[in-house]
Design a protein around this nucleic acid. Structure first.
Lengths: 194, 194
DNA sequence: CGAACTAAACTGACTGGTCAGTACAAAAAC
DNA sequence: GTTTTTGTACTGACCAGTCAGTTTAGTTCG
């Protein structure tokens, strides 16, 4: 780990942070590369030294963010029995969204859009995140802890989508409401699998 | 209602339809006024004859769409007892989203964004739609049909957000799944108030 | 040691294209 | 004869991406 790659990593990190905030607020197209560079305290050229294009910066940002989320999902469920594991997933998702609020907003904005360049990337990433949930739910069904008639794929997708929207709604419209309430609401909503 | 205003109304309607589809796909900034005019089979000047600006077209589009939704909400609950009324709301939301898929996608994309020009408009419209739900839920709490400890505001907001996201997810990722399944899922999710 | 060298990282002025909004005369609809 | 729409042309602001040049961090060698 020499100084060069550390420096470069720092720059990329700063660019991610700047881009995620601006894009969450304004959307991809309304965010200019100049804005991103300015907020990251970097010259415009540096953006293009580190990323092939504005779109690529965004796609790598998506990969980066969803990668972190699935990572936390995996850590959260490690060694837990099914129903507890599902609860742990809800908690992990909530904590993640609280921590990376802007990224979560951005995901909500882009997740259900069609025909954009990065749509394919996003579908893949969605599969990846939902995949971790599905493994957990499947294990619960196999072990008999969860109802056998549960459609694992659908339940996992619903879990993911509902968690995203309830948590983001909370952060945007009811930020004063304590986090325990939100966790409780989410668990109430997904009671059938938790 | 003379022929002139009907004609004008038609043009505006066509512009709404063109704009909603394009903006749902690409987002507001990535959609050009020329594109909208082209898709609506209208000259660019006509857009500006009917609307002050691109932004105003979009805001009126939002008002128009949410107006229709609340209208359908009101019709749906008319004269129904509380729990049935809630079910009717779910069904109405689902039907609406199925019918105006693009508008629903657009709402999901914009609803939880911050700092855009039309943010204030959207907050108001959200209040309006959730208001109808809240009236119904409140009536249920008052009559004892729904649990007294239910936070009406929060439950209504959750109902609205979850419905939006589950339905849009269905249309985008599982369009072959029959509508009854989706209705069933949504009702299962909101069981506490239905 | 430190001077000279090298490649990686970064800079910011510039370019070519795009797009919101305007102008307006002529035509069509009512 | 008034309202609405058309078609075309135009402008000025804005912006993604480029590139020639500069700085920085690590390396080599006296």
């Amino acid at each position: 780990m020499d100084g060069r790659s550390r420096r470069r990593g720092d720059t990329r990190q700063r660019l991610y942070e700047a881009a995620v905030e601006l894009i969450a607020e304004r959307g991809f197209s309304a965010t200019t590369v100049d804005d991103i560079a300015l907020r990251a305290n970097v010259a415009k050229g540096t953006v293009y030294y580190n990323f092939k294009s504005k779109t690529e910066l965004f796609e790598e940002l998506l990969r980066h963010g969803v990668g972190l989320l699935t990572e936390e999902f995996r850590v959260a469920v490690e060694g837990l029995p099914p129903r507890e594991a599902v609860r742990a997933l809800v908690r992990a998702q909530l904590a993640y969204i609280k921590r990376y609020r802007a990224f979560a907003q951005l995901l909500v904005s882009e997740m259900w859009r069609t025909n954009r360049e990065w749509q394919q990337t996003l579908v893949l990433l969605r599969e990846q995140a939902i995949g971790v949930i599905a493994e957990t739910v499947q294990a619960g069904v196999d072990s008999g802890d969860l109802p056998a008639d549960l459609d694992v794929r659908v339940a996992s997708a619903a879990l993911f989508g509902v968690g995203l929207v309830v948590a983001v709604d909370w952060l945007v419209f009811q930020p004063d409401r304590p986090i325990e309430d939100v966790e409780e609401s989410m668990l109430a909503i997904v009671r059938r699998v938790a």
